[in-house]
């Protein structure tokens, strides 16, 4: 996997202090949202734990010895939530899911792949869709199961797919 490219702000020490000036803070939070979004996309991260991620290099730049405090991190994550790129998994705000594509967008991507490869009118298991060898290069490869199901449900609503269950194996039929 190619090296993740950090934005210039990552090496700018004040980036890790929530700015008092409203306009500057707005730019700062926006930059944080972009960074988190890109970082998660690059590393294919979906479900995250606040405590865990806080000590990761995303929020802790060891080179300049700056990190986001718990309060600052919450401010940033709340902003991400406002933009619709984050969903809290619990009320205590300890775990969250990063939404770098909406369910509909995932659905469209998958359907595009299906049509392109002539998989309509066939049944696929959910496993082969996201873990199979054929989809390794696809963006949705490795997509977490709950997200995948949600994405397929959007296709189901459009009449493009049907979720089925064969002997305990989850599968999907595309139309």
């Amino acid at each position: 996997m190619a090296e993740f490219e950090w934005p210039w702000q990552y090496n700018f020490p004040p980036f890790f202090t929530i700015q008092p000036n409203i306009d500057t803070r707005k730019k700062q939070l926006e930059a944080w949202c972009f960074l988190i979004h890109d970082y998660c996309k690059h590393h294919k991260l979906y479900s995250l734990d606040v405590t865990e991620i806080q000590s990761s290099d995303l929020f802790y730049n060891k080179k300049i010895n700056r990190k986001l405090s718990s309060d600052s991190l919450l401010t940033v994550l709340d902003e991400l939530k406002k933009k619709g790129h984050l969903e809290w998994a619990d009320k205590s705000k300890r775990q969250f899911t990063i939404v770098w594509r909406t369910q509909e967008e995932w659905g469209k991507l998958i359907y595009k792949y299906v049509v392109y490869n002539g998989l309509t009118d066939t049944v696929c298991t959910l496993y082969e869709l996201t873990e199979g060898e054929d989809t390794v290069d696809r963006e949705f490869h490795g997509l977490e199961r709950p997200l995948l199901v949600k994405a397929l449900k959007t296709l189901e609503n459009e009449g493009k797919a049907e979720l089925i269950n064969i002997d305990g194996n989850e599968g999907v039929k595309f139309f």
Partner: peptide, 13 residues
């Protein structure tokens, strides 16, 4: 300069 958005503060120094 802070008000004008030219300066950022770093409180972890």
């Amino acid at each position: 300069m802070l008000k004008e958005g030219l300066a950022w503060v770093d409180d972890q120094a």
